[in-house]
Design a protein around this nucleic acid. Structure first.
Lengths: 145, 145
DNA sequence: ACAGATTCTGGACTAGGTCAAGAACTTGGC
DNA sequence: GCCAAGTTCTTGACCTAGTCCAGAATCTGT
């Protein structure tokens, strides 16, 4: 399949994949691009966006691709309670999320308490902790009425 | 159906339900008791425990009961990413959780940073925030090997 | 004890995601 | 440029947690 060789953004993404030892395919580029334009997209959102661009992609390819990207730390998978899994391409900064209980609207937020907030638990029970995930729950302006 | 009227614990629970304007049924008491002995139980765990005690209960009754209890704030529902929903009867203290990525083992932990940790977001986007949920992810001692 | 409200049962259904096997594609070495 | 080997994509079946529905059973205040 022909890649979009004149699309400089796609070329950047291709390098990013090769850096991780991943093969470069049109599907993978398209998945990455779908997320660039829509942080917090669901697997279904991404599938639809990619189909609009490439014509078709299988559900399995989307899940495989997302899985590999998450594993390679190119994407972060988040899944607030009661919601389906969502993906975002903002990785490596341990930012947190603000989620509306009414409509699932979601914003990124930086942590309130310094750089690595709450990262040290009071009693770690011998665990090797690698992440402290913070979700702020509330109602967005529209859902408050 | 006969309640366990000689079980003082069940009587306490019955009062708790009445306080919330809920009808008292053997099923509800049993669900509550199942959670007392097993925090972070799944709906399936609870169903099994209740069946051992009462003989039988429908899946729907379990979900209904859990839903009502959560709504009345008698239980808290938690659902770490990638896990099924779990329920706990420790409510009202905004404690957090420590979850093993390997085996889903889960501990309660108190917050490291004061009483209402991270409860103020940097930028709340106009949201009415009512909870800051913190999940510490890591590997338990057994899964580190 | 009764009527009305609430709850329970059983069974069908849904959504999000996974599994498996074979076809198609990408890549590095010639 | 071409080929073999390894990786990725497609198709289609399957699984699980949870929800919906309607009718039967149970609980509560009077």
């Amino acid at each position: 399949m022909i890649l979009f060789v004149n699309d400089s953004n796609a070329v950047d993404l291709a390098d990013k994949l090769r850096d991780q030892g991943l093969q470069v395919t049109a599907q993978r580029i398209a998945v990455m691009e779908a997320l660039a334009g829509n942080p917090h997209a669901t697997a279904e959102d991404i599938t639809e966006t990619v189909r609009n661009k490439l014509g078709s992609i299988s559900r399995q390819a989307v899940y495989d691709t997302l899985g590999v990207f998450v594993e390679k730390n190119l994407l972060r998978r988040i899944q607030p309670a009661g919601s389906v899994a969502r993906y975002e391409d903002r990785v490596g900064d341990n930012h947190h999320h603000l989620v509306c209980r009414g409509c699932d609207l979601m914003y990124d937020i930086d942590c309130a308490v310094g750089a690595t907030p709450c990262l040290t638990a009071d009693d770690d029970h011998g665990f090797l902790i690698d992440e402290a995930e913070v979700v702020h729950w509330g109602l967005c302006p529209a859902c408050q009425t």
